[in-house]
C-alpha cells in the first residue's frame, strides 16, 4: 500500500512537472531554442499572479484568465525582442542570452517581491482530498494532472495537424527553406514562444496553489523541465509528458525511502535514462 501510494503521488507530482515541461518541449524540443530563463519566467508569472490575485481579489479561474494572455504577450515580446536575434544553427547565442536574462529576472524579482516565499490561496481547494480505501488523493493534484493531459493533447494536435504546426515544424527543420516556401520564421517563432510562455502561465498558477514560490526557485524548475524533455525525447510532446511522470514517480519513491533522497532520485533516474536511452523513451531507435 505504501508503494502504491508513492506511485500515485508520483504520477500526480509528474502532472505538475508535465506543465513546466510542455513549454520547454515546444521551445527546446521542437524549436531547438535553449531557454535558460524558462523556470524564472514561470516564477515571475507566479509572483505576478499572486500579487494580481491579492490586489484585485481574483479567484483561481479568473486569475488564469488574466494571467495567460499576459504570459502570451510576454512570450511574444521575448521572442521578438531577444530570441529572434539569436536563433540559428548555433545554440550558444540563445543559451548565453537567456542565461543573462535568467540572472536579470531573478534580481528583478528579488527587488520587487523580496526573498519571502509566497503562495496563492485557493479557497480550500489546495487541501481538499478524496479517500480511496486508505490512499488519499488530493483534488488539486488531480486537476493539475488532468490539465497537463489536456494541454499536452491540444498542443500535440496543433503541432501535428494544423497549418501553424506544419509551418513551425518546417521552420524548425530548415529556417531558410521554410522562408523559401513562404513561411515567415520570425512571426511563427514569436507565436510559438507566446504559446510556450502562456502554458507557463497556467503552470505558474498551479505551482503557487500547490506549493510556495520565491524569486530564486526558477533554476530548479528549469532542471526538471529539461530532464523531462530529454527523458522523453527531443521533439515529442507526449515524450515530455512521460518524462515528467518518470521524474515524478522516481522522486516520490525516493522520498518514501528517505526524505532526503527524493530530488536526488529524480536526477539519478534522469542520468540513467540518458545513459541507457539517450534518444528518449518515445523515440524510435535509429
Amino acid at each position: 500500500m505504501q508503494w502504491l501510494d508513492a506511485l500515485i503521488q508520483g504520477v500526480l507530482l509528474g502532472g505538475m512537472y508535465a506543465q513546466y515541461a510542455l513549454g520547454m518541449a515546444l521551445m527546446f524540443g521542437v524549436m531547438r531554442i535553449v531557454n535558460i530563463a524558462h523556470g524564472d519566467l514561470m516564477i515571475l508569472l507566479a509572483l505576478t499572479g499572486i500579487s494580481l490575485a491579492a490586489a484585485f481579489s481574483l479567484g483561481t479561474l479568473s486569475l488564469i484568465v488574466v494571467l495567460v494572455p499576459l504570459a502570451a504577450a510576454l512570450g511574444w515580446a521575448l521572442q521578438r525582442g531577444i530570441l529572434n536575434k539569436v536563433v540559428g544553427e548555433d545554440p550558444l547565442p540563445s543559451l548565453i542570452a537567456t542565461f543573462g536574462l535568467s540572472i536579470a529576472l531573478q534580481n528583478l524579482m528579488l527587488q520587487i517581491w523580496s526573498a519571502d516565499t509566497r503562495s496563492l490561496r485557493g479557497g480550500g481547494l489546495e487541501s481538499a482530498s478524496i479517500d480511496l480505501g486508505g490512499v488519499y488523493i488530493g483534488v488539486l493534484p488531480v486537476i493539475v494532472l488532468v490539465t497537463a493531459i489536456v494541454l499536452t493533447a491540444s498542443l500535440d494536435f496543433v503541432i501535428r495537424g494544423t497549418r501553424f504546426g506544419r509551418g513551425l515544424r518546417a521552420a524548425a527543420a530548415d529556417t531558410e527553406a521554410a522562408a523559401m516556401t513562404g513561411v515567415n520564421p520570425k512571426t511563427i517563432y514569436a507565436a510559438s514562444t507566446a504559446i510556450a510562455v502562456a502554458i507557463l502561465g497556467i503552470a505558474a498558477v498551479f505551482q503557487s496553489l500547490r506549493a510556495t514560490v520565491s524569486p530564486a526557485d526558477g533554476p530548479a524548475q528549469l532542471i526538471y523541465a529539461f530532464e523531462a524533455v530529454i527523458i522523453g525525447g527531443m521533439g515529442s510532446l507526449w515524450g515530455a509528458f512521460v518524462g515528467s511522470m518518470v521524474l515524478g514517480v522516481a522522486q516520490a519513491i525516493g522520498f518514501r525511502i528517505d526524505p532526503g533522497w527524493g530530488i536526488l532520485f529524480g536526477h539519478v533516474i534522469f542520468l540513467a535514462a540518458l545513459a541507457i536511452r539517450p534518444e528518449g523513451v518515445m523515440m524510435k531507435r535509429r
Partner: peptide, 20 residues
Amino acid sequence: RLFAGMSIEDNLRVAIDYGR
C-alpha cells in the same frame, strides 16, 4: 532542403498553407 522529419504530404502542405 526538404523539411526533415516530416512526411512528403506535410512538406507539400506547408507550401499550400504559406505560398502565394
